[in-house]
């Protein structure tokens, strides 16, 4: 077949375009790869069944958003409906993202899950709260206890956070009752309030309850309150941070330290679905390693520089290629 100049030009122009595409692709991959590497992004990590508690170099605090949490990989832990004992059910939460840190003898566990509705009031008999809990074997190094509340010889320690507890008593139950004098029988000493007198019963010291159990029907809140918890809802997801000092606060609660390898399981409740008690989404136990691997440093400035630089280089490269190709 006879070729023409026009054909040559067309062929030459096609080669140039292919080169430009290849160069652009290589530049894009290089920039994205560099950014991902510096950011510490590891796409395969979410498949691991071990939660590594990274060593933080500063107090991460109780804020579950940002900070060091964005710099460590999350483990996607699948959840299913609780199907072992009454009350069954609760499959509203398909999976949770679990991350862990430790700093200065304190373990921090962050749990995040999708939930488009905030249920943080139980000021109604048919209102139930969003909640989450993490569960540990009562003793590290022991055999793994039964997932549901452990058993007689191997108990479990549960840290539970509830959205309604964190939200506190609603405004419709004012601490200072302006009509109190008219509303109430004029007995003001605690002897007139027997339940209050004996300190009965609700723990209002924080959003977390610390519980121990050795089988069904034995779940008991400890008198001490060694666990902190705080939750944030971003419009679509809950993220909750739990924390506790390493040393065991008492019977049935694990003694933790750097180097501890133990297990952790997660439960979560969606109040919108009337979840409460055993009606919840639960995971299996996964491993928890409290190691010495540091939290990757904050490389956000480098990422910005690289993104801007990469963009600049890409534009320059494109212009150069455009100019040197016939």
């Amino acid at each position: 077949m006879r070729t023409t100049h026009a054909d040559d030009d067309t062929r030459t122009g096609g080669r140039a375009r292919r080169w430009r595409r290849r160069l652009g692709l290589v530049a894009t991959v290089a920039v994205v790869g560099a950014v991902a590497h510096i950011a510490g992004f590891q796409p395969a990590v979410s498949q691991l069944a071990t939660v590594n508690a990274y060593k933080a170099d500063a107090d991460p605090g109780m804020d579950p958003s940002g900070g060091p949490w964005a710099r460590i990989p999350g483990v996607a832990v699948p959840m299913t409906a609780q199907a072992t004992t009454y009350p069954f059910g609760g499959d509203a939460i398909p999976a949770v993202d679990v991350r862990a840190l430790h700093y200065n003898g304190q373990l921090f566990v962050r749990v995040e899950w999708p939930d488009s509705s905030v249920n943080d009031s139980t000021f109604g008999t048919t209102l139930f709260a969003d909640a989450a809990a993490v569960q540990f074997p009562a003793a590290t190094g022991s055999k793994v206890p039964a997932l549901c509340m452990g058993q007689a010889d191997t108990g479990v320690n549960i840290w539970q956070w509830r959205a309604d507890t964190e939200a506190g008593v609603p405004q419709t139950l004012p601490e200072e009752d302006p009509d109190g004098v008219a509303d109430h029988y004029p007995i003001t000493d605690d002897l007139g309030y027997p339940a209050r007198y004996v300190g009965n019963p609700f723990d209002s010291t924080g959003a977390a309850q610390n519980l121990v159990a050795e089988g069904f029907g034995t779940l008991t809140a400890t008198p001490e309150h060694p666990v902190n918890a705080a939750g944030v809802h971003d419009g679509n997801r809950w993220a909750v941070v739990f924390s506790r000092a390493f040393p065991s606060p008492g019977e049935g609660q694990p003694n933790l330290t750097e180097g501890t390898k133990t297990d952790i399981a997660v439960a979560a409740w969606n109040g919108q679905h009337q979840d409460r008690n055993g009606q919840k989404s639960v995971s299996q136990f996964v491993s928890l390693d409290i190691g010495d691997e540091p939290v990757p440093p904050d490389r956000t400035p480098w990422i910005v520089i690289l993104l801007v630089g990469g963009l600049f280089v890409g534009v320059i490269a494109s212009v150069v290629v455009w100019r040197i190709t016939p």
Partner: peptide, 27 residues
Amino acid sequence: EEACLGSRFCMEACPYKKIYFNYARKV
């Protein structure tokens, strides 16, 4: 009341509906 988690299954089960929920203590 220290073991009660405020799950309120008792309120469903009681046919006389003589169980109440404490909105402040959540039991």
